[in-house]
Simulated scan of single mutants.
Amino acid sequence: MSTATTVIITNLAFITAQLNRSLALIILIFGTIGNLINILVFSRRSLRKQPCSIYFLGASIASLFALYSGLLSRLLSGYNLDISIYNDSICKLRFFTAYWCLTVLAWFLVFASIDRYLGTSRLAYRRNFSHRYVAYRVVSIASLLSFLAYISVFFCFNTNSFLLSRQCYSQGIICPFVTDIEFLILYSLLPTIIMTIFGSLTVRNVKQLGRHIAPATSNIIAANNRQLRRQKKIQLVPMLLTQIVLFLLFTVPVAVSKLYTSLTNLLNYEKTNEQVARETFSYNVTVLITYLNCSVSFYVYALTGHLFRNELKKTAQKLIDKNYTSRTTT
């Protein structure tokens, strides 16, 4: 191996370590704060009546677990403190939890996009499917199926002390290909396609609702109540659409990287040490990018959701009042 190649490999490893120390820490801090606030806001009784809010709540919980199962180990690896590279059980549990939570996050956004499509439909029988009891069942079933989908991680992932990098990894040739393709399809490919389709259909529904003129009715109060409920459903649409766009931007790079690596490994494509180093660096960067999906939701909701901002203010006021009351009574 030439001196130039050695320098390139060393520099890429150094940059990766610095990114794991700095960028991973920033994502982890902002993601923790944002998801905790999301959980407080979406747990409010007024929002729990909205099925879309239930999916947002589930996505925030999944994001929090994904950050601490997947991203935290990358942060620790920047300081050579990642114990998952030495312990088989932690290695398996780390990847299983990260894959599971990231996939659940993606599918909760999928179901939120389907729910907004149903909730904004002018057809009553479609709107009937936009219900919180349906959302609770869907969340439970999706979580269970995603859990079962990644059982293979416990058989494929192990530690290897002879490797200088990525010591907790999927062994052999078939296992990496199966787990990577499975993650690619369940986390990236299918959710992206379905979210794009239903996001477009939701936009069409909202435009139709804007042009729709309510028919004359003798029950003005009932008509107004229906209009208010419909407006509340529409207010969640900008939050969801922005989240979908960001999901696509943050997910496509890691999907492309995983697909390339899986195919070249399966075909036994010979690579130089420099190629391996560049691919590893590219993969590490795209993984950090995909974890932005777990950290930006609160800031997206706060910027694009009028309803969310109102509920956020109420939550903050409730916490302030509760703190004031506890101080005055002690």
Rank of each mutant, 00 (worst) to 15 (best):
20 N>L: 06
234 I>F: 00
100 W>E: 07
194 I>T: 10
13 A>S: 15
315 T>N: 03
155 F>V: 12
183 F>S: 05
203 V>G: 10
121 S>D: 15
156 C>P: 01
240 L>H: 00
242 T>H: 09
95 F>W: 04
130 S>G: 06
250 F>A: 06
16 T>A: 09
233 K>R: 02
274 E>D: 07
153 V>F: 01
318 K>S: 09
27 I>W: 05
53 S>K: 03
1 M>R: 13
143 S>Y: 01
87 N>M: 04
293 N>Q: 09
221 I>M: 06
150 Y>G: 03
99 Y>H: 14
140 S>T: 12
87 N>Q: 08
298 F>Y: 14
187 Y>G: 08
314 K>R: 14
329 T>E: 15
54 I>G: 05
159 T>G: 08
48 R>N: 04
220 I>E: 11
312 L>Y: 01
174 I>A: 06
218 S>T: 13
273 N>D: 11
307 L>Y: 00
224 N>Y: 08
98 A>S: 14
132 R>E: 11
296 V>A: 14
114 I>C: 00
47 L>T: 05
153 V>C: 04
267 L>R: 07
227 Q>C: 07
286 T>P: 02
329 T>A: 15
290 T>V: 14
245 V>R: 10
196 T>H: 06
301 Y>V: 05
10 T>Q: 15
279 E>R: 11
52 C>W: 00
48 R>M: 06
248 L>M: 10
179 T>C: 14
189 L>R: 01
315 T>L: 04
10 T>K: 13
268 N>M: 07
287 V>M: 13
147 F>C: 10
209 L>Y: 09
205 N>I: 08
139 V>D: 03
49 K>M: 11
162 F>L: 15
53 S>T: 04
277 A>W: 03
64 L>A: 00
176 P>E: 07
32 T>M: 04
196 T>C: 13
253 P>V: 12
135 A>T: 04
132 R>I: 11
328 T>Y: 07
167 Q>R: 14
230 R>P: 03
20 N>S: 03
61 I>S: 00
111 F>P: 02
134 V>N: 10
163 L>I: 05
68 Y>P: 04
18 Q>E: 11
